[in-house]
Simulated scan of single mutants.
Amino acid sequence: MTFRVTLQPADRQFNVARDEPILAAAIRQGIGMPYGCRDGACGSCKSRLIEGRVLHGAHQAKALSAAEEDAGLILPCCATPQTDCIVEARSVPGAGDFPILKMPSRVISIERAAPDVAVLTLQLPANQSFQYHAGQYIEFLLRDGARRSYSMANAPGRLNDPPAIELHLRHMPGGLFTDHVFGAMKAKEILRIEGPFGSFYLREESRKPIVLLASGTGFAPIKAIVERMQDLGLTRPTALYWGCRSKIDLYQQAWAEQAAASLPSLRYVPVLSEPRREDDWRGRTGFVHEAVMADLPDLSGHQVYACGAPVMVDAAQRDFVSRCGLPADEFYADAFTSELDKH
């Protein structure tokens, strides 16, 4: 049995199987909807149910509270329709542009960029044309059916030959996947991946100045976006703020400095929340999103792209909109939700 879902205001229609989440059906049929984690943890896909009835699967209260659900909001990533539905959601032009592929990948290298950060380079099959927007992510398909999501850190124009993607992984001690990456993983190991996913990528048609905001390994998709801007020759004024705990966590500081030197329109500001004495740090300190507000108190004409820990992304969204005049629909985010965050 299938139900008909109509997306407003785009007036797009698609079929959804009875036990299928609305978002999964949209992705399967190339319909662009906003989303991040795909499993009820981040709230990026939150939409309004105009007509019809849905049943929600397990999700976090911070992604959708009981009060929001009572007010008619839904999470399409874990909402299955029980009737035909009309859903109000921002359509995301380009989100369904590229086919989602399942494919093997081969580990080319594992570089320990910081004590708890690995830069993983994966070779893709030469016979499959893997396309994505800078900022999107892939998922590893693990043996027990679990999945782990990581953003591409290189722009799609920089896959090289043979094609390879770069991923930045933080070690989560006790984590099923990252314990393996930081322990037994060797070059030439084969990993199964699927992608691209996500609606986090640069809106290239805009002319607005840009704030790129990253914490920790949330730097990965931001790096891909900067490379994309370099490849397109974009000159939109851009400020890149990267927040980490201490100096050692700025694991690609030299790359960021070089990018700012090569792009006259790009300004780079690293911010440390807990600099150590041995860091001899003379740069900015504190919360990274507060450094943005100190420099740019008026964000009414900007676009913001934020990626990193959910607490940083949530605080930035709240404060930029309420205190700096950022239009709510010009805040684009990818909150990195670990398995720990989902429980």
Rank of each mutant, 00 (worst) to 15 (best):
K102W: 02
P327E: 01
P162I: 14
R18A: 14
Y268L: 01
I100F: 08
F177L: 15
S91P: 12
P115D: 12
L120I: 05
Q252C: 15
E274V: 11
C37H: 09
G157E: 08
D341T: 02
C42H: 10
G52K: 14
E111M: 06
P237T: 02
Q128L: 12
R236G: 00
L191I: 11
P327G: 06
A10Y: 04
K186V: 10
P209E: 00
I100C: 13
F3S: 09
P115Y: 05
L64F: 02
L232I: 04
V292L: 11
V311C: 06
R192A: 09
E227S: 11
A309H: 10
R38V: 06
E339Q: 04
L213Q: 00
T285M: 12
E278V: 10
S300G: 11
V292N: 04
P221E: 02
K223R: 15
T83K: 09
A291Q: 03
E189L: 05
L299W: 02
D161H: 08
L202P: 01
S262V: 10
S91T: 14
M1D: 13
A66G: 09
A63V: 09
H59W: 00
D280K: 11
A220S: 05
I138Q: 13
Y132H: 12
D97S: 15
L75N: 06
S273C: 13
G283C: 09
Q252E: 14
I108G: 02
P76E: 12
E278C: 11
V271C: 11
I225S: 01
T238Q: 01
A67R: 13
R236N: 06
F287R: 15
P99W: 08
S109Y: 00
Y201S: 08
A333Y: 00
F98D: 09
T80C: 12
L212R: 01
Y35E: 06
N154K: 10
I110D: 12
P81D: 07
Q136K: 13
L272C: 12
A71C: 10
D279I: 10
F197Y: 14
L7N: 13
V87F: 11
V321I: 15
A17I: 06
E278Y: 02
D84C: 12
I190C: 08
H302V: 02
S265H: 07
G145T: 14
H133M: 10
D19V: 07
K46Y: 07
G175E: 14
G157R: 08
D249P: 09
I190N: 05
E330M: 03
C78G: 07
G145C: 12
S151H: 05
I190W: 04
R282K: 13
I222S: 01
